[in-house]
Design a protein around this nucleic acid. Structure first.
Lengths: 336, 336
DNA sequence: TATTTTGATTGTAGCGCTACAATCAGCCGA
DNA sequence: TCGGCTGATTGTAGCGCTACAATCAAAATA
């Protein structure tokens, strides 16, 4: 006996219950609380459900129970491998405790708002966002929702809970290494456009610490995050044109830094002899490219995991911290 | 008047309706069919909803209407930039027609099954999968669900609908270029493990076309997809050890190919003079790295867009093709 | 054997929303 | 002034499921 397929026939708990000769509640229990149901009954129900291709309707279940096992994450990009590790961290931690992760891509604040509405509308168990820069309407919504919300890499006091690290300190540590090696004409590459807010702490930090060291901090160039590798050559060209003595370049991500290294290769500039290069993020390419990149490990994977822990604390009504600083570490390699 | 926040107070349509002095149906209409509601009424309802932070409960709405505006995509990896472009394509096309995309990451067939169950349970509008290799249980489920399902890069007849291109033809075109340039000792790098199924057509194609050209096709090395760049050096070392005359290497992705180029740099092997290298996917790095990579453009973005079109056709009961071949193109660059 | 205890199973009510039909108010022409 | 019409608004019923209390059968005790 096989079931004909793809019909618009709706299979509900009723259908399964009747076919198995039990009440709908027994079917429900079979899926939600298997050990409330006798071995034999459970097996029969499961067999019939499989036979019919029945999957419990979660919209109905969540509605009836007022709960959900889905956590929603809204990420601004998937190009940046930090977010990849972040997602993996969330995904791992979530499935370890019986939650499911669903992701929504939002490359602009408007898309973020739409994604937040979708997830709030779905009444997910928790919501994960990146950064502190949101549309006004998004913030309003987040402030009023009873759902747990975590902002990862938060740079301002979070709407609900936040996690991150001190970008200022990381910038300071990175710059110290560059200056300690004797580099003096340091260029800064930042992001323009939608990504700029997420990176907004870096430029002031750069300026402050350069000033502290008595150095000129005017060698600044902004690129578009979407440009990826190609932003590297563009930045190097621009900065070198502004100052031919440029001897170090700080990049916003390892991708941009790799682009700079590619360009250095084309120009036959030895790195770090002619110019020092730093990345940010400790993406995989940082340790594979030649020379290997000095960069900042922002612990994206751990941030992802922690994020889920914070949501669980809130759901289980445990009193957790509303902000976690996970720190960072500088990865010293050959490019400086 | 402001609303106190984060309480466990549930705001429902009722709440809003009472506060606005209208019936719940008017609130419902305000959100779903705005022009059924008078301008003034609508504005009042919307204001109060915003004030209260009300977001319609989609679990309830979807349940009542038997519809959903969410499409679910299950992707095996986010490291591979093809999937990134794929996702973008879906996301774009989906939002153009009022759908939302949610993504689930599944790095193993078991995780894929779980993700499929989640999405079927949510009764999404459509489901998008990658490849043709699924758990038996996944296939059973897909065969019986009435929801539209598209398999992207399908290599076998799809469960419901499929889209892809001929990997055999692409391999043939690529190999022809390599052989035309006079390379003869060609190594093949493939994937082992969970990714191997997604790439399973390539090795036989390689063997067939090498045989056709009267060449030896035994230089094969398998790597792990998760290794990323570092798979490149590993493969090059292994193949070169097996045959010191190795003069070309076909990589499963541009990432692996980039890893090979990095290693060639360390060995001071000029590419393509000492060895030719090909990638697959036309990721961004392919055109940025030196030398630029000859690769296969698998049109991931377009595949993503098309996928949504197929789902819409099904939903609107338009008769669409059940399989679309989008073709590919070979990008000839300096590495061969 | 009568009575408790235990665990499996089941009915009831309702989660928050929407389809649909019913109602209502305002306005037109006769 | 009155039906007839139009478009805004509203009540009813029910989507598929689960919490919870009620029921039932079988095993354990007296």
């Amino acid at each position: 006996m096989t079931v004909e397929l793809r019909g618009p026939v709706r299979i509900t708990m009723q259908t399964v219950a009747r076919a198995a000769g039990v009440s709908p509640m027994t079917v429900s229990n079979t899926f939600r609380y298997p050990d409330r149901v006798q071995e034999a009954t459970r097996r029969r129900v499961l067999d019939i459900a499989a036979e019919l291709g029945y999957v419990p309707n979660r919209a109905a279940g969540d509605l009836a129970s007022g709960q959900s096992r889905v956590v929603g994450a809204v990420v601004p990009s998937l190009k940046n491998s930090s977010f990849y590790m972040f997602i993996r961290g969330i995904s791992e931690a979530a499935s370890e405790c019986g939650y499911e992760l669903v992701i929504s891509l939002a490359e602009t604040p408007e898309q973020e708002l739409a994604a937040v509405q979708t997830f709030l509308g779905l009444r997910v168990a928790g919501l994960i966002l990146v950064g502190s820069d949101h549309e006004r309407a998004t913030v309003d919504l987040l402030r009023k929702t009873p759902l747990p919300v975590v902002e990862a890499w938060a740079t301002s006091p979070p709407v609900d809970m936040g996690i991150g690290y001190s970008v200022r300190k990381a910038m300071q540590s990175l710059l110290r290494i560059v200056l300690d090696r004797g580099f003096r004409r340091v260029g800064f590459v930042g992001f323009a456009g939608d990504a700029s807010q997420r990176y907004s702490e870096r430029l002031p930090a750069f300026r402050d610490y350069m000033a502290e060291a008595g150095l000129d901090s005017s060698l600044i160039h902004l690129v578009d995050e979407a440009d990826g590798f190609s932003a590297g050559p563009a930045a190097l060209n621009a900065l070198h044109q502004r100052d031919a003595a440029l001897d170090a370049i700080l990049c916003p991500t390892d991708i941009v830094a790799a682009g700079v290294l590619f360009e250095c290769g084309r120009r036959d500039w030895p790195v770090p002899e002619r110019i020092a290069v730093t990345g940010w993020g400790d993406f995989e390419i940082a340790s594979e490219i030649t020379p290997q990149l000095t960069t900042v490990d922002a612990k994206a994977h751990e941030i992802g995991r922690q994020t889920v822990a914070m949501i669980r604390d809130r759901i289980d009504e445990r009193q957790g911290p509303s902000f976690v600083d996970l720190g960072f570490s500088i990865v010293r390699r050959a490019s400086v």
